[in-house]
């Protein structure tokens, strides 16, 4: 058990703080929602009722989609684009999907390689792009969930303001959907750009995301 915790501490730590943050978001969101209920002459709702509302769903989904998009783009862009001196980039000259030998697939797979790395055809194609596909799928589903939950929350607000509700097509081409979407995207893109560029010149001793402290600024694709 102790060994399991130690060997998986990075994933477990982030899952734990994710769960705590989600619970915190639900509690704070419920308090804010109930404040507005009082103003509107409605009744307060329980935490369980709140997490089933479209207000909570849209707030969760809009952040999820932007985070998964951020990592999807980071995964795909770093196949083709490089940054001299950044540990987030691979070495210059290695742009592209690389050779089977470099990627340890097909006849170059090792004995401990995943089984599908040895296989050909569809299985090889799937495992070769599985990270991008899964991140892309979660991004797409989260963005769709944001649009459906956002439509529900937005239409409840429109009816409360004595306005006509709008269609899904109207919502996803309207300012509310894109304001929510782009305000998340811009911050994610800035964070990635900062990580790529700052890690050229700055170090964090012992971090897998940093070059070793003494590594030269122009050393590319070196992680500590």
């Amino acid at each position: 058990m102790k060994r399991f915790l130690k060997e998986n501490s990075l994933s477990l730590f982030f899952l734990l703080i994710f769960a705590l943050a989600l619970v915190g978001q639900a509690l704070a969101g419920q308090a804010k929602f109930n404040d507005q209920q009082l103003v509107d002459g409605g009744q307060p709702i329980s935490l369980v009722e709140y997490v089933a509302t479209s207000d909570f769903a849209v707030d969760v989904a809009e952040n999820w989609q932007s985070e998964y998009l951020q990592f999807l783009l980071f995964i795909l862009a770093t196949v083709w684009l490089v940054q001299r001196g950044s540990p987030e980039s691979k070495e210059l000259g290695k742009e592209g999907g690389e050779s089977d030998e470099d990627q340890l697939v097909g006849e170059h797979a090792r004995r401990d390689s995943p089984a599908w790395a040895t296989a050909g055809g569809l299985r090889k194609a799937l495992i070769s792009n599985s990270l991008g596909w899964v991140m892309g799928l979660v991004f797409a589903l989260s963005w769709l969930a944001q649009s459906v939950a956002g439509l529900a929350a937005g239409n409840a607000e429109r009816l409360a303001e004595l306005r006509d509700p709008e269609s899904w097509g109207g919502y996803v081409t309207g300012p509310e959907f894109w304001s929510r979407t782009l305000q998340n995207w811009q911050s994610e893109f800035l964070a990635v750009a900062s990580m790529v560029a700052l890690s050229i010149y700055l170090r964090q001793r012992g971090s897998a995301e940093s070059k070793p402290v003494g590594s030269p600024h122009d050393a590319t694709g070196v992680e500590g």
Binding site: V51, A52, A57, L141, V148, A149, A152
Partner: peptide
Amino acid sequence: MRAVLLLFALTFVAGCA
């Protein structure tokens, strides 16, 4: 992935049924 499906279920309940 299970969390995404849960979010979808919540969205469905909140927005459609």
